[in-house]
């Protein structure tokens, strides 16, 4: 398998899925295109390009040669981001950021407890003060008004 074959294949699947989903919407015609017209056209275009990529993809670099050494790290970071997205409006900005930074710096990057605590609490408080208090950007607060 080469990278182009994998990438192109994924795009083929996406295009086919889009075409399938677009069938639920009215198509219209050339003179009066409906809501499904442009998506169908674009998905077909994508399909053509993706098929070409797959067809010409034999010569590209092999999938096995791609380095994935950092994948654990990447997954951990994504997990922390998911936590942020889930808790931002539930726990409020400040708590979310403190916890997320603690997880990233303390757990993932193995910094000392003092660095972790100082950096996360300081960053959270400083950015909240600057953007929410001084510049009046509405940032979410938790159920405790914090």
């Amino acid at each position: 398998m080469t990278i182009d074959r994998v990438g192109g294949g994924a795009l083929v699947l996406f295009a086919v899925y889009t075409l399938w989903e677009a069938r639920k919407l009215p198509m219209g015609n050339v003179q009066n295109p409906g809501p499904a017209y442009a998506p169908t056209l674009l998905a077909l275009l994508l399909l053509v390009f993706a098929v070409v990529i797959v067809a010409l993809g034999a010569g590209s670099s092999r999938i096995a040669t791609v380095g994935w050494s950092e994948w654990r790290h990447a997954v951990a970071i994504i997990a922390v981001c998911i936590f942020m997205a889930l808790s931002l409006e539930r726990l409020g900005y400040r708590i979310t950021v403190v916890v997320a930074l603690m997880l990233l710096i303390g757990l993932l990057e193995r910094r000392s407890i003092v660095t972790t605590a100082l950096f996360s609490v300081g960053f959270s408080a400083a950015t909240f003060y600057l953007f929410a208090t001084v510049l009046r950007v509405p940032l979410p607060r938790g159920p405790w008004g914090f």
Binding site: R94, I95, I113, T116, W144
Partner: peptide, 21 residues
């Protein structure tokens, strides 16, 4: 390490809890 980080997070949450609706 995990425990201490979680403990710190808890402290933050509890302190924040101080303000009652």
């Amino acid at each position: 390490r995990l425990l201490s980080v979680v403990a710190m997070a808890l402290v933050v949450v509890i302190v924040a809890h101080g303000a009652v609706p």
